[in-house]
Design a protein around this nucleic acid. Sequence first.
RNA 1: GCCGUGGUAGCUCAGUGGUAGAGCGCUUCUCUGAAAAAGAAGAGGUCGCCAGUUCAAUCCUGGCCCGCGGCA
Length: 291
Amino acid sequence: MGTRRKDKIIAILGATASGKSDLAVTLAQKFNGEVVSADSRQVYIGMDIGSGKITKKEMKGVPHHLLSIASPKRNFSAGQYQKKADQIINQILKKSKLPIICGGSNFYINTITKGLVMPSTKPDYKLRSKLNKKSNEELYKILKNLDPLRAKNIDKNNPRRLIRAIEVAPSAPLKEDPKYDCLELAIKKDNLELLIKKRIDKRIKIGMIKEVKRLRIGGLSWQRIENFGLEYKWIAIYLQNRISKQNMIDGILQSSIKLAKSQNSWLKKEKNIYWIKNKNEAEKLIKNFLN
RNA sequence: GCCGUGGUAGCUCAGUGGUAGAGCGCUUCUCUGAAAAAGAAGAGGUCGCCAGUUCAAUCCUGGCCCGCGGCA
C-alpha cells in the first residue's frame, strides 16, 4: 500500500538578475516543459519593465504562466498564488509536460515546494486597515484574548504578523504537505551588482519611467506604487520631484542589491537545493532526476 | 586678510563638564494568505589636531588645520 508516487516538477531559483528566466526557457525547450512564474510583482498587469517580466520574444515559444494575471489595484497574496499555481501545474502535468517553476519570490515558491498548508481564513483588508491604526501593544493584547497559544510565540514587534494572527485566530498548528517531487536548482552567480547596474540603465532606456507614469495615470496612488518597492518605489519618488534622477538610480541599485542578498541568504538555508553555475549542470541534474 | 559659521559612526546630523546618540547604510537572523512586504539582533567613533583650565573636557579657553557663507 505504498503512497502514490508524486509528480515531478522543477524549480529554478536564485537572486534577482541571476538569469533565472533565460535558463528556464532553455530547460523548458530541452525537456518539453512549461514555465510557471513565481514572482510577487510580475503577477500584476502593467508592471512589465520594472519587474523584469520576460517578453514574448524571449519566451521563444515556451508557454509561461502566472504573469500579468492580477490588477495592481488589488492585493495579490501567497495563498492566491498557491491555488493558481497548483491548478496550472496540474494542467501541465496532464499534458505530460514538465512544470518548471521559476522566480525570485521565495515565499511563493515555498507554498509549492514545501506544500505549506495555509490557514483557510482569507485576508480581510478592511480589518487589516482598521488594525493598522493600532499600536503593537494593542494588537498583542487583542491576539492574547483571541489566541493565547499563538500569542506565546509570536513576534510582538511585527504588526503584519500580529494582524494576520488576529485575522485567522484561533489558528491551527502549522503544517507542510508537499504535493510534488520537486528538484530545486538555484543559480550561483557572482558580480550581481554589476549585472543589476547594467539592467537599470537598460530598463530606463526602454521606458521604465513611462511605465510608472502609466500606472499613476491608471489610477494607482503614489503610496501604492511606492509599496511595490525597488524600481516602482524609487521612480515614483523621483516623479514626485522628491529626489534627483541620480538618487533614484542609486536607490534602485541599493535596494536591488539588498534584495539579492536576502534572497541568497534565504536560499542558503534551504536544505534540498542544488546550486548550479550553468545550464549544463542543470541539464545533468534534471536528466538524473527524471529517470 | 577680516567677520561669521561648521568639523561627532560609511552618510545626514542630534547632544552633554562625569563610560557617546538617532535615522539611513552595513553584517547576521526571523518569516505559513501584504514577501520587492513586515520584523529582530549586531558591528562600526582617540567627538578635526595641539596645548591650557578642571578631580574629570567631545563639551569651557587659546592656537593651528580643513569646509562653507559674507566683507574687502
